[in-house]
Amino acid sequence: MKTILDVRDLSYQSLFSHCTFSLIENQVTVLVGPNRSGKTVLSKILSGLIPTKEMIFFENKSLDSIDSREKQKNFFFLFQDASFPFRFFRVQEELSFYFSYVKLQEEEIQEVLEKVKKQFGLTPLLKKNPNELTLFQKIRLYFALAVILKPKIFLLDHVFEMVSPQEKEILYRDIYFLKQEKMTIFITSSKLEHALVGDKVLILHQGNILLEGSPFEVLKEDGILNKIGLDLPFFVDLSVKLQYYNLVDTIYLTQEKLVNALWKSD
């Protein structure tokens, strides 16, 4: 359980004041906060887009002391509307180009290419212009580029919010795939339902981490969360409240178990 990115006593404008947390290597960390809490600014700070001094530490080195070459190798980020233009006119060429950033043998290149084409549904899109893909397709293309580049940290800012529920489920599965590729993933969102995809959840409020823990530990605190403007996803909300009102003895995480606990199986 090694820490790969440390935020130590971050203060920035009026948004953050002595904010402290860390990202554990190879874990998915989801940061949820109400609107205007500074989530996107935080993503920009963590990726070095907004410079800070001696407050963000990557593998124990202060981010401002790391040169851009090393940052290019280790950090990859995707901001919500994925609007940063792709350079090439065909998906196939954009994919090939990213291989020039890493040193791989020809067979390895083919292997990785097949792997990402299959996982991210890119085969029918290879000849299309990447800038003309739908948002969902663009996000998956970015995921493929991440697998090629193999950064240590992948920052996703508000990425699940503009896709349909079915597309979101597919992206969740993609996140697990990226995790298996040994990446550390940081996701920001304004909706608590996205917390369920994380290993660790952080709640950002007024410049500080209000709650921290596993999704289960954090989502239990429905009183605190509701107060800062975040609603729990229906099923978790129901489970937590039923336990609170003593209608069940513990918080059940599946529908089947909850219903069987309420109406004892005959």
Binding site: N35, Q80, H158, M162, S190, G229
Partner: peptide
Amino acid sequence: DNPFANFDSKS
């Protein structure tokens, strides 16, 4: 057209 995509529950 999809106005609420980014908003938290309170907003």
